[in-house]
């Protein structure tokens, strides 16, 4: 029984479909990584789940969370859900906190909204949440404003806000991208520890495969608004079936071995207006055949243990 089930999700802005046929499940307490380049539709997927698509965006398909279809849920009910059983943290810790409110006030806002806590209780809970996310001198920091905190501390404060109501699902949209490498490691450690401690599921959106291999149990690789490959993290890293996944993994610099040119994927992700008719990766794929350009390949299970949307997956891997 999965906590969140996304089935055949499509998102369009007017006539342009930026996302289609996206399906995946997250079990309770599971960490699912969603990987892809910029423009692959990772963030749109997250916003569609939260019901926070930008103006003009329309979602179709089905997003089931705890037996409720979030896409048909009225806005009021979605508001009760957001920040309570589903929470989200964003990429930009620098600008994702309100500059005119103290950290404590922003954490308290969630608690008062969803738990009906009194101001004083919420403040006390805010302090313990800051301790939970390992912010030193939490009693002092709670009354400080965002500009008084470092980037890493702000991201921790964001996590504290997200965790305030002990969500069942945490959506983390590139939580470490804007941070220094050392700070990144700290935040990832924290997320890993917290999800074990609180038993929440995490949907981790990233373009960093290192982050994925670090903490994810399962991985969904997205390309140009579709799922290219999905499966257990270990299988995907050991035996990637989709040429795109293989190319991504090949593009990771290695510490050992001779120094050579880093393999890169030629070209860029096409914009939604001119997605190819067949396989969307075909124009950049080294293994493309004329058949690839006829129809979009369907996601199918492979003997290697992953699912891939590639008609030549067996031959390639």
């Amino acid at each position: 029984m999965s906590l969140l089930s996304v089935q055949d999700l499509a998102v369009s802005f007017g006539p342009t479909r930026v996302l289609e046929g996206v399906s995946f499940d997250i079990a309770e307490g599971e960490v699912l990584g969603v990987v892809g380049e910029s423009g692959s539709g990772k963030s749109m997927t997250a916003l569609a789940i939260m019901g926070l698509l930008p103006i003009g965006g329309r979602a179709a398909g089905r997003i089931t969370f705890q037996d409720r279809d979030l896409l048909t849920l009225p806005e009021r009910a979605m508001q009760r859900l957001r920040g309570d059983s589903v929470a989200m943290i964003f990429q930009e810790p620098m600008s994702s906190l309100n500059p005119v409110l103290t950290i404590g006030e922003q954490i308290a806002e969630v608690l008062r909204r969803h738990r009906g806590m009194r101001r004083r209780d919420a403040h006390a809970e805010a302090v313990s949440l800051l301790k939970l996310v390992e912010i030193a001198a939490a009693e002092r920091r709670v009354d400080e404003y965002p500009h008084q905190l470092s980037g890493g501390m702000r991201q921790r404060a964001m996590i504290a806000i997200a965790l305030a109501c002990r969500p069942k699902l945490l959506i983390a949209d590139e939580p470490t991208t804007a941070l220094d490498a050392t700070v990144q490691a700290g935040i990832l450690d924290l997320l890993r520890g917290l999800r074990r401690e609180l038993g929440m599921a995490v949907l981790l959106i990233t373009h960093d495969l290192g982050v994925v291999s670090d903490i994810c149990e399962r991985v969904v690789v997205m390309y140009a608004g579709r799922v290219a490959e999905a499966g257990p993290a270990g299988r995907i890293f050991e035996q990637p079936a989709h040429p795109y996944t293989r190319a991504l993994l090949a593009a990771i610099p290695r510490l050992e071995g001779p120094i050579g040119d880093l393999p890169a994927i030629p070209g860029v992700v096409p914009s939604p207006a001119d997605f190819p008719k067949g396989c969307r990766f075909a124009p950049r794929c080294a293994h493309a055949r004329p058949a690839c350009e006829v129809a979009p390949p369907v996601l199918r299970a492979l003997p290697s243990g992953t699912e891939a949307a590639c008609i030549r997956a067996e031959e390639v891997s």
Partner: peptide, 24 residues
């Protein structure tokens, strides 16, 4: 982004406007 953040914690539009947008 913090306005989107306020929506993400379940604040109603009126509240987002009064508490997060207006003071800034």
């Amino acid at each position: 982004p913090f306005v989107e953040g306020a929506r993400a914690i379940g604040a109603s539009p009126t509240r987002v406007l009064l508490r997060h947008v207006l003071p800034n």
